[in-house]
């Protein structure tokens, strides 16, 4: 069976066009998402993970554009669809949950309006039917009194409740894929945990595949099946979560894992990755991580390819051989 989503050599640029190349926010990124599986897309701010998500949704804002590559969704290349064809997929077969629930819902429209329009954008049903579906969806994500809450405005909900509403909207059409762009970053830790469990339960029940974009390795280890690590617009390592997190091959992944506090290393200073993520406008020649990497040699002045390693891929000439702990 083919993958639900297969992104091949995706390049997303800002500016440029007509022969000239713009700034590459996403550079030659390939990954696959299987039906019903969860992919954790991990990276720092500015690594291109969100832009990757928006590229799949074809929701890039100008001057952003997909410069090359394929986004094969269920056998169809999304990059080549017309705007109307893409609209019919958005919200229906691929849904998205955004980072900040405070900003995602329109402040001047009721929840009912915003849910009913989402139903009727894809299904020709009466307002009454759409309303019933909206109400049921709210109940499903654990919002008390869904009937009453439908007529509320977003500001009458707490942040966690708003994110539940957003998730309810995303699940309205039982999509095959949900792209979740840091959906819990803006929430309290306790609420985070609830939302993640809820999300996990709902997507498992409906067999929905998920791309979970985050910088939080703890979340990834908890809910993802596979992981893809991005650095400065490129994929540096990918594979099943269990093996990548316990035995990272790329020095960047290893550094990320070492910088997460752990109770096994109590009292030991946290290890940091030296330096800062380079700005996308002045990436170093060769491997982008070279300047921060203690394993770098002259060989790293050339961009390393993705080396296959069993079921994994790693973009490094000098992969870490055994866990650094």
């Amino acid at each position: 069976m083919t993958s639900l989503l297969s992104v091949n050599n995706l390049v997303t640029e800002f500016g440029g066009g007509k022969g000239a190349s713009g700034l590459r926010a996403v550079n030659d990124v390939s990954f696959k998402v299987e039906r019903g599986r969860v992919l954790g897309l991990v990276g720092e701010s500015g690594s291109g993970k969100s832009v990757t998500g928006f590229s799949v949704m074809r929701l890039l804002e100008r001057p952003g554009r997909i410069a090359s590559g394929q986004i094969i969704f269920d056998g169809v290349d999304l990059a080549r669809l017309s705007n109307e064809e893409m609209r019919q997929i958005r919200g229906k077969r691929i849904a998205m949950v955004f980072q900040d629930p405070m900003m995602t819902l329109n402040p001047v429209l009721t929840i009912e309006t915003q849910m009913v329009e989402a139903v009727r954008a894809h299904d020709q049903v009466s307002k009454t039917t759409a309303r019933q579906r909206a109400r049921d969806a709210l109940g499903l994500v654990g919002i008390p009194n869904p009937e009453e809450r439908l007529s509320s405005y977003p500001h009458q909900f707490s942040g966690g409740m708003r994110q539940r509403v957003v998730i309810a909207i995303a699940l309205l059409h039982k999509p095959e894929l949900i792209i979740a762009d840091e959906p819990t970053t803006a929430l309290d830790v306790t609420i985070q945990s609830q939302i993640i469990s809820e999300f996990q339960k709902l997507t498992e029940e409906s067999g929905t595949a998920v791309i979970w974009i985050t910088h939080d390795l703890a979340i990834v280890s908890r809910l993802a099946d596979d992981i893809a690590v991005m650095y400065a617009g490129r994929l540096v390592e990918s594979g099943p979560v269990s093996s990548v997190l316990t035995d990272p091959k790329h020095p960047y992944t290893a550094g990320l894992i070492a910088s997460v506090p752990s109770r096994n290393r109590r009292g030991v200073p946290l290890r940091q990755i030296p330096g800062m993520t380079p700005a996308i406008t002045m990436l170093p020649r060769g491997c982008s991580f070279r300047t921060r990497c203690d394993r770098a040699t002259d060989e790293c002045l050339v961009i390393p390819p993705l080396f296959p390693q069993q079921e994994r891929f790693v973009r490094c000439f000098h992969p870490v051989m055994k866990a650094m702990t």
Binding site: M57, R87, R90, G91, K92, M96, T104, E117, A118, A121
Partner: peptide, 21 residues
């Protein structure tokens, strides 16, 4: 604004996004 982007992500038609949102 994010809510316009989200309205697009819901698959709304452009006409409705402009006329309502």
């Amino acid at each position: 604004q994010d809510y316009i982007k989200f309205a697009r992500a819901k698959g709304l038609r452009e006409r409705r996004i402009i006329a309502v949102h």
